[in-house]
């Protein structure tokens, strides 16, 4: 098993370096060849109105609106149409709906404790939105709302504000014990309190940038590879690389949804049980 893994890791490295060499080569060759590749890896993240070409107001229906709507449609299809059979022995769709439910529910229960189960609908909403948005964004010519910091930032801030308010409502002033590490020596506690405070306020930043950054990077890399596919010589390698990246991106789409959700669970736990 480990031998095989090492071997595949070795071949992966070889492929990686081959691609890198080809990319460097093409960058040097292309301008002299006069062909001129134009890279637009970020164009796919443009917000455009769906109808017409007017300015974008806050209410304008844009491609972001369209793909968020498709996310809702996906959630409805999976969790409502899928579970409409209400069968004791589930169909395939119902099984997936139940697995998703059980996955998020168990995560929340394991990480956040029994009393965090109350907030399951909120956590499930976040998970469903991010997972569907990420996965639908892998369709060719699609738009991924979660590649935008405006979207992930709002998601992270919603979690941050909700968790902070919940912490104070549930625990009152004792919520501040989260920043006062009782197990540390007294002299160190003020220093640790400052570090804890900073780390607390950095949470929404890392929470949002992690998701948007991961999603954006994968999409941009695929686009770069796709641009190289225009050169006949490198096209096969480029297409193989796109396929490999695409497989990785499917994994990343789910992992990022999972990471965002599990961090939300962790923050919920801190709000409900602030003591270290």
């Amino acid at each position: 098993m480990s031998d095989q893994a090492k071997k595949s890791g070795g071949t992966g490295k070889v492929i990686f370096f081959a691609i890198l060499a080809l990319i460097l080569l093409s960058i040097f060759i292309v301008p002299t060849g006069g062909e001129g590749l134009s890279f637009h890896p970020m164009d796919q993240f443009q917000i455009k109105p769906v109808f017409g070409d007017g300015p974008i107001h806050w209410y304008t229906v844009t491609n972001a609106t369209l793909w968020m709507g498709l996310t809702v449609l996906g959630v409805v299809l999976l969790l409502i149409v899928g579970s409409s059979g209400r069968a004791i022995v589930p169909s395939k769709g119902q099984s997936i709906a139940e697995l998703t439910y059980g996955f998020v529910y168990k995560m929340l229960e394991d990480v956040g404790g029994k009393d965090s189960v109350k907030y399951f609908p909120y956590v499930m909403t976040l998970f469903c939105f991010i997972a569907f948005s990420n996965v639908l964004g892998l369709l060719p010519a699609s738009f991924t709302p979660t590649t935008h910091i405006a979207v992930t930032g709002v998601l992270a801030l919603l979690v941050f504000v909700f968790v902070t308010v919940l912490g104070f409502v549930k625990n009152g002033a004792t919520f501040l014990e989260l920043f006062w590490v009782k197990s540390a020596p007294l002299a160190l506690r003020p220093v640790l309190a400052i570090i804890e405070l900073i780390s607390y306020f950095v949470r929404p930043v890392s929470h949002s940038i992690r998701l948007a950054g991961n999603m954006m990077a994968g999409h941009a890399v695929i686009k770069v590879f796709a641009t190289f596919a225009a050169i006949k010589l490198i096209a096969p390698v480029s297409i193989a690389a796109i396929a490999a990246m695409y497989g990785l991106e499917i994994l990343v789409a789910f992992i990022q949804a999972y990471v965002f959700t599990i961090l939300t669970c962790v923050y919920l736990k801190d709000a409900l049980h602030p003591a270290h």
């Binding site: 917000i47 974008i56 107001h57 806050w58 209410y59 304008t60 844009t62 972001a64 609106t65 968020m68 709507g69 996310t71 809702v72 959630v75 409805v76 969790l79 409502i80 609908p121 909120y122 499930m124 909403t125 469903c128 939105f129 709302p145 935008h148 405006a150 979207v151 709002v154 998601l155 919603l158």
Partner: peptide
């Protein structure tokens, strides 16, 4: 503003659906 508005709409719809 556009993205935030539509995001909140989406989240509310998903929340109620769920």
């Amino acid at each position: 503003p556009n993205q935030i508005f539509w995001l909140l709409v989406t989240l509310v719809v998903i929340y109620f659906v769920l």
